[in-house]
Design a protein around this nucleic acid. Structure first.
Lengths: 206, 206
DNA sequence: CCTATTCGGAAACGATCGTTTCCTATTAGG
DNA sequence: CCTAATAGGAAACGATCGTTTCCGAATAGG
């Protein structure tokens, strides 16, 4: 069985092999889509940013929409990895919430902040009339809300977060705060500005 | 002097008079721009929504960008009027904050919520590379933040809001909450969902 | 009444959009 | 070594984009 698996992983697809890494190309696409939005990004923009010709693009992806959705999925994967790594450093529930807020507030600063969040961007630009985009946004938002709620519950269980407020309500408010941070980040707040929002939000946990 | 003013207001411009009201047309444009964004809205979309031909559009506005900016300004004017009317009903500072949050939360529900906020949409889609759009977004956000801060200070002065937290910090957090509400509204939260966010935010004032 | 000016509307403009085609290059398998 | 299959790349596709032009209709001022 090991042999068969080894053979499978070693197996190459027939024909000329691709000369670029899909994920690296998507990382470039994410930057363009985040800054200019879906409709504001042309295939020419993507060709330049990803260093590919139209032929290679359309062999790797069905159409522009597929490039966008793949970028969205890759974005979620990368951001979730950053978040998970940060959460592992936390000592209790309250610390986890704090670190999560800081991940969002850091992402809202400077160049990355002006570039923006692909989830927020997709929600604002596409969710109203594109079902596929709306589903991914909805799933992403639910996931983030659920995570926040779990962190709050953990903090309430370990005593680091007050239990006098419903965890679900607290999570929804914090969800609103993090997306708001991403919106405010588009016009470039100062680090002090962003961290004051995080600090104020944390007072809710007392 | 009264006579001169009356003559001025009565003065008509030469040539054939315009057959539509600019502000009514802009109200239609706002709906389209909010739902589909700037780049997602074509001149054909605007023609259909506003009930105009390209000729009339380009005689009333320099170009597509000018239509958008005029829509943005009109949107701000309309929303500010709604907000001001609501604030006048309030009995104290805390009540003003509550009513302001409710104005945003109401706007985030149902069809209007899915359509979205033109300020948030412009921030997300255009602010990163369009200076003119970024300036208006920045001005709008600052104005909203300043208003929130003034309301909080008023509440702290009349004793309806706790003074143990800095008004500027509180205002920034609430600013983040209202923009977050608008983002969440794009995927259609339930009224209970939205009002639970408002209720949770109000607990910050205790 | 005549002239100047603006509007409404249809048609047409070049530019750019997203996408496809076609040819060559490069690989795997028999 | 030959065949099948895929990738890279340039050129070209029809469609749609934002915008302009042109013409008849409607108004104000002299």
């Amino acid at each position: 069985m090991d042999i068969r698996i080894a053979a499978d992983t070693a197996a190459r697809t027939p024909g000329r092999p691709r000369e670029f890494e899909i994920e690296q190309a998507l990382d470039k696409a994410i930057i363009v889509f985040s800054a200019k939005g879906y409709h504001g990004t042309s295939i020419s923009d993507l060709k330049e940013a990803m260093g590919l010709t139209a032929g290679s693009l359309y062999k790797a992806f069905k159409d522009k929409k597929a490039i966008f959705l793949a970028s969205f999925d890759r974005y979620k994967q990368v951001r979730n990895a950053v978040l998970d790594a940060e959460l592992q450093k936390a000592v209790d529930g309250r610390d986890k919430v704090l670190r999560m807020l800081r991940v969002y507030s850091d992402a809202s600063l400077g160049e990355a902040g002006r570039r923006g969040c692909l989830v927020v961007g997709t929600a604002v630009e596409l969710a109203a009339y594109d079902t596929e985009a709306a589903e991914r946004v909805q799933a992403s938002m639910s996931r983030t809300e659920d995570l926040l709620q779990a962190l709050v519950r953990q903090g309430q269980a370990d005593g680091s977060i007050r239990s006098s407020m419903d965890a679900a309500d607290m999570a929804r408010l914090l969800l609103s705060v993090v997306y708001g941070l991403r919106v405010i980040g588009k016009t470039g707040p100062t680090p002090e500005h962003a961290s004051s929002i995080v600090d104020a939000a944390m007072k809710l946990l007392d």
